[in-house]
Design a protein around this nucleic acid. Structure first.
Lengths: 195, 195
DNA sequence: CGAGTTCTTGACTGTCCGGTCCAGATTAAG
DNA sequence: CTTAATCTGGACCGGACAGTCAAGAACTCG
């Protein structure tokens, strides 16, 4: 009884997310969003609401995916410590260094946008909980000292990961980044053979 | 032979810096800058050039001050380790949590503004060198293991500091922030009594 | 006191942006 | 085929913004 949509919602959200990721929120115009999504203004507004709502949709999708990846890595790792080490792997991709969309957005908008700040807060609480579970498992598996506080260590790992991502954004060369990551991993996740 | 300036350049730059710090670059309008500086558009343009140049001036002043503080802390500390520990103190101020202006600016503009990115790169190279000096001194003073690479540890400390600042921006409560800072400091700057 | 130079103010401009809206296209149901 | 409902694209609008400019104010020097 009506014309069906001519686009795939997930594809559009992915394209939009990449645009926001590359350029930031303020520096992304509606024209940019139309270009990367292939949609007209009317369609975007009818389907997702205004720019801010569209951004939040893309951001929530991003953090959701990140958490899924983390959960999966922890579930698939033969030992939890392996998955924890991945968190501190040097963020050297092939593409441009655009950091973490959630971190970028928090720093750009956090002061003025309570929704983004709240989402950031919840996101990192969830991340902390996931990582803390991994830490606890690694402790049971004898790979981490049993006397450490899993949550404090999880937050330290998160902070270290964000710091690494940030250093990467500043253009630090790959070798230095790798050395830094190794240094952090070596001290936060020391080898600990069951004893 | 001419009318003297009716404003103090440093006061204006400080006010402008605070405005950019609170709201970010894009979210700061010329009207904001006029309000916080008390100057008219013409005066701002005549004295500092356009918005971008003014921003760079404020940013350079900020990083310069940061480095001065770091140098001073290292010079005044009876033991270098004391100054290094300060780097990882939980960033809980009395005012709003606005993080580090340099980090905020890098994440907001780094992708599109080579000048900012370059400045960030140089800034963190300088910070790394200053901290590495402190690490080397702490090693000589017997407060840190002598076999560690000062530069790698310096970068790890910087990354941890930035990570902490970021966690603070997300609204993490003071207790958790303090615990995280303690956890990071405890593992990156372990007690090491001369042996 | 007068003249010349710099500073200051705010009105003005052209551009761009987010958001609205409507007219036409496209589809399914009757 | 008609009809109704939805989708689509782009023209349009009001506002905000960065940047310009010119006229007047303020000060110093002679």
């Amino acid at each position: 009884m009506a014309r069906p949509r001519g686009f795939d919602e997930k594809q559009v959200l992915d394209a939009v997310r990449d645009q926001f990721w590359d350029a930031g929120y303020a520096a992304t115009s509606l024209e940019d969003l139309m270009r990367v999504s292939g949609l007209g203004k009317g369609s975007l507004y009818a389907a997702f609401g205004d720019k801010h709502q569209l951004f939040l949709r893309a951001l929530r999708g991003y953090t959701h995916e990140q958490h899924d990846h983390l959960r999966q890595a922890l579930a698939e790792a033969p030992r939890a410590l392996d998955a924890l080490r991945k968190i501190l792997e040097p963020p050297i991709g092939d593409g441009p260094r655009r950091g973490c969309l959630m971190a970028n957005s928090t720093l750009e908008l956090g002061n003025a946008d309570p929704e983004v700040l709240d989402h950031a807060h919840r996101t990192y609480e969830t991340s902390t909980a996931l990582i803390a579970d991994g830490v606890a498992r690694a402790q049971r598996e004898g790979d981490l000292p049993a006397d450490a506080d899993p949550i404090a260590l999880a937050r330290a790992l998160l902070a270290a990961q964000q710091g690494l991502l940030f250093m990467s954004r500043t253009g630090l060369d790959a070798a230095a980044l790798t050395a830094t990551a190794r240094s952090l991993a070596g001290q936060l996740l020391p080898d600990h053979h069951e004893g």
